[in-house]
Amino acid sequence: MARTKTILMLAAPLAAGAAIAAARSRAARKPDESGRRHVVTVFKPLSELESQQLPGSLREIADGVEITLRAAPAGRGTEIAVRIPEGSSTTPGEVRRALRETRSLIEVGDVLLPAGPPTTKPTLTNRPLQKATQHGREGGLL
């Protein structure tokens, strides 16, 4: 039992780190994706979005990226696509965060903030996970 516990204590933070490392490794192996567009679907008709400026952080990075809007099928709203042109200083992480925040602003009028104040403290075993969650809206596959 004690051995199992020890294994689990070691395995838990390692597994979290491994998941992140695996994702990075997959990303590193991928072919050149620099031209790939980042896309979200926002549950708001295209007609309503075209009549207003895109809100929030997507507007903040608009000068450094190409943004296209098109109607999503079956009444699902509007697809917002962002491509980072060659030479732009905008990062994929900034685009992901901007798209997620913009979707929330359009749909909800607000962006959900993490719970607080925090109840955790920085520790050696917390560190890999805290690193991964510090920029929670910048990572992922979007």
Partner: peptide
């Protein structure tokens, strides 16, 4: 929900 998780990167990756 698309807007209820402040940290979507982990589960999106998994």
């Amino acid at each position: 929900c698309d807007n209820g998780n402040t940290n979507p990167a982990i589960t999106e990756t998994l």
